[in-house]
Design a protein around this nucleic acid. Structure first.
Lengths: 386, 386
DNA sequence: CTGAAAGCGCTAACAA
DNA sequence: TTGTTAGCGCTTTCAG
């Protein structure tokens, strides 16, 4: 199939109409409500479409129809700005296959793994859920990963092109969201700040952490302490999880003194540090194994996986000597050794419900602000024992 | 920040122009080439934009400017059509947190894991790469997962809305691609069929598998056999990998008789079956451990992970009794026990290069058909020993 | 530096 | 059933 002369302008409704000997309105009808057109005419038009290679312009359709049929999903960035420009020549040139020996390291990691593996698995699922639901409802999905979330980017590049927007980022200033929300429905995938009028869909971080913590705190060995590794200070998710943990501490009547708070950042590297530090702390007094905490509760999975790594490296037995828990339920927690006890967030449902919420508001702009909280599931696995 | 009366129509350039006391042309200039406008005027317009909550219409801009500033990525579907409609009430209602005990199973899996985990990790990375690169070039990215890849969907819902399209699916009929390619640049993320004129970006499946296979075939124990587990018959990727494997067999001078072909389907479940069957085969003649193959080379990671699972369940030692390899380099291969030797495809680079290729053609439609092959890396890990 | 005006390609009344 | 005709909101010459 020869490529048509690329200089030729793409055909429009007018071309198709002329070719089929009908008016542009009829062409439009054949595309949108075929039943309103006599079968004979219809097939004539369709033939012209094929012959001319006609593809309707989404832009024109969007303009005329006042809706784009596209939903937007705004995710926290991959930090692409920081990323160096790849060496394209080397990338596409080398015919030599490189052999990387990854045996012997505790666990393969940097070698050939994905570069930006840290936060993404989480968002990928949200994206997938949103995509599926949007499609089912007849919408396309546009994705953007926040680059500094500058006003220009969000407003010009996304908001103007979609009928509704789901924002998964505490990084977008409220004021900006408010601006956008004046034009299209915006749903925020996080807990609502008090006072904001936007629609929100979130996950029950607090109750989830509380349920998990109550369970693992229940049979704590005498006298041993418990460490909670938090996330970044500005994370609402972390705040909720921490609150849930505190709820549990209170509920089981644990003495505050036995609980220690360590600040983390949701990253795996920091988890390793924390784990190593805990081991070192014991090292100073190696005789007493009890100097290791009996339990390390982490505010997210990446942190917990880092802790696990540090423990394995140091030869600390999990769950024998210490128990460890995470939060999120990313895939890697199933494959870690030991498998990580965690709280699984329904990421894909988050995406789906976000889409639903947008569509609901699209259908009825007068709706009161929506507040949906999705339940979570506690997954008890090897890292907390039998 | 009170939500503006949603009944009020969204403001347009005209509104902004009137409010700022300038013409619409000036408003447009402030947005696109601010330097062409006197600073004083500029800030007046900007103030109006903020005050009115103006968000430019992407559709109108696209129409007028003849380019949408959006690139499309078409992925194989999540089989969303088959998926049942979730029970929304239950989804969003339940306040009770469920505790799922996953200890004791060989490996946690269905319980809380992602539902559609099979093929996706692969695509997620391509998506991410494409997104990053598109953004860097000033384009937004629209994603679509093929639903039956019906003509209507691809043509109407995607092709018409984007300036260029990357298609990651052998499932899209050539004829359809050709149609779309008459309007916008289309790059196919797979090897080129002979004779097609589209741009292609692919990964060196054959050389990668050959390099891997040559390495692991090198020190094969005497007399033991080798099993190759293929992918689906219609997969070009599988064909290439198989060819690479055959190359290696020939290169190391292995007798054909020692090589056995088993048909797989790229799925983990099938991998488990194959693994179990191999074990059972040995079972019939349990005395001779040699009845197990010395090496199982799988056409992709999912299959290999399934095989690994089956072996672990049966108490077969990997790499002690059998060695196993995969292909793709998905994240899970790092976490499996033992870590899986595999060939890592540069998925994110695939996405990036796809975007670059589209833009190159956009810039110069007269370019000859592009054929880029990305190199791969062989990752030697525990599943093939030291 | 700013304004006027002509489209961009399509949809949706309204007529015929 | 089909055609005519306004726009949809923005960009972009071309004048001024």
């Amino acid at each position: 199939m020869p490529r048509k002369d690329p200089v030729t302008k793409a055909p429009t409704v007018y071309d198709v109409a002329a070719h089929a000997g009908v008016s542009i309105a009829t062409v439009s009808r054949v595309l949108r409500r075929p039943d309103d057109v006599r079968p004979e005419t219809r097939s004539r038009v369709r033939a012209s479409v094929l012959e001319l290679g006609y593809v309707p312009s989404g832009a024109a359709r969007g303009l005329a129809g006042r809706r784009t049929g596209v939903l937007g999903l705004f995710l926290p960035g991959h930090d692409a700005i920081e990323e160096p420009e790849p060496d394209w020549a080397a990338l596409t040139d080398a015919r030599r296959i490189e052999l990387v020996d990854e045996t012997g390291r505790g666990r393969p990691s940097e070698g050939g793994g994905p570069t930006r593996t840290s936060v993404s698995p989480y968002f990928d699922e949200v994206l997938r859920g949103a995509e599926v639901e949007a499609w089912r409802r007849g919408f396309a999905l546009m994705v953007a990963a926040g680059r500094g979330s500058s006003r220009e980017v969000l407003v010009n590049d996304i908001a103007g092109r979609v009928d509704g927007l789901a924002v998964l980022a505490s990084t977008v200033p409220d004021e900006l969201l408010a601006h956008v929300a004046r034009r299209i429905p915006v749903v925020v995938l996080a807990d609502a700040h008090p006072g904001d009028q936007l629609d929100h869909v979130s996950v029950d971080n607090r109750a989830g952490m509380r349920a998990l913590a109550e369970h693992v705190l229940a049979d704590l060995p005498e006298g041993r302490r418990v460490v909670f590794v938090s996330g970044p200070a500005d994370s609402p998710d972390d705040a909720d999880r921490h609150a849930g943990f505190d709820d549990a501490v209170r509920a089981v009547g644990l003495q505050e003194a036995r609980v220690e708070l360590v600040h983390g950042d949701f990253g795996r590297e920091r988890g390793r540090e924390v784990g190593a530090a805990l081991v070192a702390g014991r090292g100073a007094d190696a005789g007493r194994a009890s100097c290791l905490p009996a339990l390390v509760v982490c505010a997210n999975d990446q942190t917990a996986l880092g802790v696990l790594e540090a423990f394995r490296t140091a030869g600390v037995d999990v769950p024998g000597q210490v128990r460890v828990t995470g939060f999120d339920g990313i895939d890697a927690t199933r494959f870690s050794v030991p498998a990580l006890t965690t709280v699984r967030q329904p990421m894909d449902d988050l995406g789906r419900v976000a889409v639903r919420t947008i569509l609901a508001r699209l259908a009825d702009p007068a709706l009161p602000p929506q507040r949906v909280t999705l339940p979570v599931r506690v997954l008890l696995r090897e890292s907390t024992g039998g």
